[in-house]
Nucleic acid binder design. Structure first.
Lengths: 340, 340
DNA sequence: TACAACAGTGCTCGGTGCACC
DNA sequence: CGGTGCACCGAGCACTGTTGT
């Protein structure tokens, strides 16, 4: 393990018998280089197995060809798919992705953001825990590099964004449940401090308005993206007297879905039998659930690709813009007519 | 956005009215610095909000304070937990984690490895797709920095490793099933090209040997870590004539679990009723499954922490060693006496 | 004279881009 | 036009020079 000193641009220059700067220009395909020079340099580089040092390059140029991404939760398969899409697109463009996890902790989120700034990432992808956090906003504002928000409202920031049209899918789902005779439809989801929750609530509300049916405020239950919250809320709502008890539930979020299903199990209820259920993610393990749950689907990998594309666009000097991707309601076995 | 040129060590020196070299020495706690000097320098650094440029530091020192990790599958919650543990431990030590995904593609895996080498990571964590791949081995051998394998056999490499004692959990599970009267127990799992599969098969075999019962080779079904493989295999085995059909199944791997459960659903079977079932990961969504599946558990986060610790140890010059963590068989509702 | 504590210089890391020939 | 030399990015480190005690 005697550190086999890496081959540098100097070695290539010596080998090819030319100046260091000529090697640099030849390799970065500068206009003013003769074909002969190019050939010589490439041959020498090839023989020595030369690869440029990214560290040195970025010290000089100020660009790291690295893009940072702060996610709330690694283990969430939804983010896993997004990351996958981002990484794929970035690698094709010669960029490296630096993902980091805030674990849902605002303090940690700020730490990660400052870390990424120090590491001089060329752009930042962010799906923050809360849009209301001033500390996070400040940390983001501290960036002089482009920022792309993932499913977060870009209102106050001069940032690009990739958004999901949650309202669409939830509106369709709610409308379908209404058409099936449901009137008391519960909406259990996460914090209103982030856009997805607000959009889901909007879709839900719009469906009721379109049908001209008043909404029972007590059945709107945003709160937290945790299984515990969803479970308790579900149990509370299903314990209401028959006249107030929901006949259908829309669950928004991965942890929410788990919590709601836990409550169903606990109460010995089969989704769809007594209470209809629509969830907001087509997770892999839903395939093994019986009955098959009705879902609002979305293409997470495509989100990742779009986000990566936007980031690269901004790095090249483009103006921030928003991309919105659709969600779609897919009826399976748990959207059923209200039982009489 | 007028690039507010970052504050350098020079600015700090000017501000404090001292020499650049003094700043450098003061900040790196060199012996020959008076307390007064140290105070002045720290004050100036504080006021200006100085943070050393990691890029410049690593160009000089050769160390990036970054550790690379190549995983097979981001979306797998098992890896999510490991990554979480790694990141936590590394951040506490002032290191940054650079995770990258091979998507189960050997070519991609090699690409990621060379990328990490170029980026000069101080150590490499790896949970390779196959231990038999010569291309991967070569790429790993090309590293001059410490390597830590995650649940992979360190035989040929001079590398540290964090291993799981899969054999233990599977042996206990198999022994329990045997005690419950099962004789035809199927073992459905992934590729034997990686250690977890071989260890699970070992535990399975040992339990039979200890009981003095011959093994039906036809029921050992390693193959691939995909839901499709597991599903097809399960359907094939359960379609055997009664005398050959397994009365219990042990499923090794996340995708395997999904595939086996798909097959059960498809065939209208409830795990535990007709065929007992033990799976090898305590996944979050198993909490919502009814009946509750018997599992072989393991602490993925702890694995991550241990791996990070080993890497840091090796960076400091320690000798490669192996850490083995236990797995534990946990009886729930699907380990049941064989039906007569 | 000796020595501690700092200043200052200069080279290094690997590569880029500009002025100049 | 094609090519070279050189300063520079931000920090680390070794070594000499300069003080004050």
């Amino acid at each position: 393990m005697e550190e086999p000193r890496a081959v540098t641009i100097h070695d290539v220059a010596t080998r090819a018998g030319v100046a260091v700067s000529s090697v640099s220009r030849a390799l970065s395909s500068h206009p003013d280089v003769s074909p002969a020079m190019k050939a010589k340099v490439f041959a020498a580089a090839e023989e020595l197995g030369y690869t440029p040092d990214p560290g040195a390059q970025s010290l000089r140029s100020g660009f790291t060809r690295t893009i940072g991404f702060v996610v709330r939760d690694f283990a969430n398969p939804f983010f896993g798919d997004i990351i996958h899409g981002v990484e794929e697109a970035l690698n094709d463009a010669g960029y490296t992705l630096l993902v980091t996890n805030s674990s849902g902790d605002p303090g940690r989120e700020v730490d990660r953001l400052t870390l990424l700034r120090q590491r001089k990432v060329d752009a930042l992808l962010l799906s923050s825990i809360s849009e209301a956090s001033t500390r996070t906003s400040k940390a983001v504002a501290g960036f002089t590099r482009p920022v792309v928000l993932i499913d977060r409202d870009p209102r106050k920031l001069k940032a690009g964004s990739v958004l999901l049209d949650h309202a669409q899918g939830v509106r369709d789902a709610t409308a379908d449940l209404i058409a099936l005779g449901h009137r008391r439809i519960a909406m259990i989801t996460g914090s209103t401090a982030i856009r997805p929750t607000r959009e889901r609530l909007r879709g839900y509300t719009e469906a009721f308005e379109a049908a001209g049916i008043p909404i029972d405020e007590a059945l709107q239950a945003p709160g937290a993206f945790s299984a515990a919250f969803a479970r308790e809320t579900t149990e509370r709502l299903l314990a209401l007297p028959p006249a107030e008890r929901p006949t259908a539930i829309v669950a928004g979020g991965v942890q929410t879905t788990i919590g709601v299903l836990e409550a169903f199990s606990e109460l010995g209820l089969r989704p769809g039998d007594d209470v209809s259920l629509v969830v907001c993610d087509d997770l892999p393990w839903l395939r093994v659930m019986r009955p098959r749950l009705s879902v609002v689907t979305r293409d997470a990998e495509e989100m990742g690709r779009q986000a990566a594309g936007l980031a690269l666009e901004l790095i090249k000097g483009g103006e921030p813009r928003s991309v919105t991707l659709p969600t779609a309601y897919e009826v399976r076995e748990t959207s059923r007519p209200v039982s009489v």
